[in-house]
């Protein structure tokens, strides 16, 4: 790993300033970034830690739902939303291992947008709002493919607002080695309709399964999607599963999520 400078600002403004001067990169839990730096695949002259910024940490109820600071750890989310949003708590509590959950953060996960990560499906199915240092981005506009998001250079997520559905569930089928999602499905039922977001499966990253949403909005039961089929055409195929297998998982896990919700 190459040498770097480290700064730990106390406010969002200071962080943004540090990030926009020279070769700098945001560091949150470091669970992705540090590993990629060790492999020589990432690196910056300055790392700007976000975990010392009080206004970016913690969970509270507010306008539009749960406000979760971007630098809040998975473990904190799992604990704090256990009663207010159990499906999201389960998602956070199922990430990695205790070490990863105590360091990794919701903002880091959403900024990274790993195609096999869990949070993107939770945010997309919830219709979350990604709040940054300069604007608010709807989840539907935020995710733009593998590791790609709507964030601009030097822009940081400060918090995420999760509307709380009437019913929801996240079902993750683990990739046997990494235990990331081989495929994961988050189903959220709101008064206005059902949203179904799928991670781990598509070559385009997290996506909404709109056919299932339509069917489930009319009839929120596993039976409602039994007649649907998922096109394997754009699914990921790798040593852990073929495209057809992933297409199958999307449907099986969606049904299970509906039953669990």
């Amino acid at each position: 790993m190459q040498n770097f400078d480290f700064v730990k600002p106390a406010t969002i403004a200071e962080a943004v300033k540090a990030l926009n001067s020279g070769d700098a990169q945001a560091l949150s839990g470091g669970q992705t970034l540090i590993a990629t730096m060790k492999q020589g695949l990432a690196g910056a002259e300055t790392l700007v830690s976000l975990t010392g910024i009080a206004e970016m940490k913690g969970v509270c109820q507010g306008d539009g739902g749960l406000h979760i600071g971007a630098a809040t750890s998975h473990a904190t989310v799992a604990r704090e939303v256990a009663t207010t949003y159990p499906a999201l708590a389960k998602l956070a509590g199922g990430i990695g291992d205790p070490q990863v959950r105590n360091r990794g953060t919701v903002g880091g996960s959403l900024a990274n947008n790993d195609p096999a990560a869990c949070y993107p499906s939770g945010a997309l199915a919830s219709g979350a709002t990604i709040v940054t240092d300069r604007r608010e981005i709807a989840a539907d506009d935020y995710f733009q493919g593998l590791f790609a998001t709507a964030l601009d250079e030097g822009e940081i997520i400060t918090k995420v607002i999760f509307p709380i559905p009437e019913k929801a569930a996240y079902v993750k089928f683990e990739q046997p080695a990494s235990r990331f999602a081989l495929t994961g499905v988050f189903v959220a039922k709101f008064a206005g309709g059902v949203r179904v977001a799928v991670t781990g499966a598509s070559n385009d990253g997290v996506f909404r399964w709109t056919e299932a949403e339509k069917a489930l909005s009319a009839n929120f039961s596993a039976a409602a999607i039994s007649g649907l089929s998922v096109d394997a055409g754009n699914m990921i195929s790798d040593l852990h599963g073929t495209a057809e297998y992933r297409a199958n998982l999307v449907k099986v896990l969606t049904a299970r999520a509906v039953t669990a919700a």
Binding site: F173, P176, L182, H240, G241, T242, E244, Y245, N248
Partner: peptide, 11 residues
Amino acid sequence: VSPGRVWQAIN
């Protein structure tokens, strides 16, 4: 005998 292989064998 991974999940993917079992499913593929079944199907």
